[in-house]
Amino acid sequence: MNSCIAASAPGREFAAGFARDRIALAALAVLALLFAAALAAPWLTPQDPYDLAQLDILDAKLPPGSAAAAGHTYWLGSDDQGRDMWSAILHGLRISLGVGLLSTVIALGIGLAVGLVSARAGGWVDALIMRVVDLQLSFPSILVALILLALTGQGVDRIIAALVVVQWAYYARTVRGAALVELRREYIDAAVCAGYGEARILFRHVLPNVLPPLIVVATVQVAHAIALEATLSFLGLGLPITEPSLGLLIANGYIYLLAGHYWISVFPGIALLLTIVAINLVGDRLRDVLNPRLR
């Protein structure tokens, strides 16, 4: 009913709506800070954690505050290869954010297009697409990842590809479900009567209404993608061990938890937690602001 207004809402109104919630604003600030830190990682850290020549095995598993053989201080301790945790966390944040966001955005885009087309077309097109979706959803991501890994080797791009393959079907199904309900509403009939084209109906009328529930799912999914990447790393199928993401750092430090070398796993865990909480708070607010009915 208010969809036209929602679709044409100017940016300023949107920003004002967003800023009304202080917590969300704070989360946005934290997120911006995290992004900045991730981007500026090479200038904020004493060590390039991906350059093996800079690591020293004799500095392995030092507790926070220890001095390194190279002179700097391991403020957050070092891991089992003598990698400075502070440097590793900032660099890892960069990879995790990149992997989580990119894979979610690509999967969301594919799922949105496929879901809308499926809902609108109906008939055998719909049936075919939904069967492909079923196929995809019943295919464990771990197997997809293992096959991709075996065929192509390890790498950030392979992980993103694997996560997209794992996630797109989920969006497609959610979008289709929401779109079906939406397509039965009166305003669509009105739009059809008004002689609007297919694309216009789908993207200007249906899309704004299916988007809010999708953003709830997507914010959860960014977090999920990052956690899934960590899980794949835990199972030995993730990123190259020499270029750890936050998830891989946690997975690597996991075995040292019982032994009391908590910093190897807990500090990246806190960084991950902070990132995901911030993403979700921002996402929640976005949903509220974007939802035409809640405004």
Binding site: A223, H224, A227, T231, F234, Y254, L257, L273, V277, D284
Partner: peptide
Amino acid sequence: IMAGSILGFSLPTFWVGLMLIL
């Protein structure tokens, strides 16, 4: 409740599992 729910999916399952055991 919302803040608590975020905790539910921000930490990897294997990590939470070991914590539960511990």
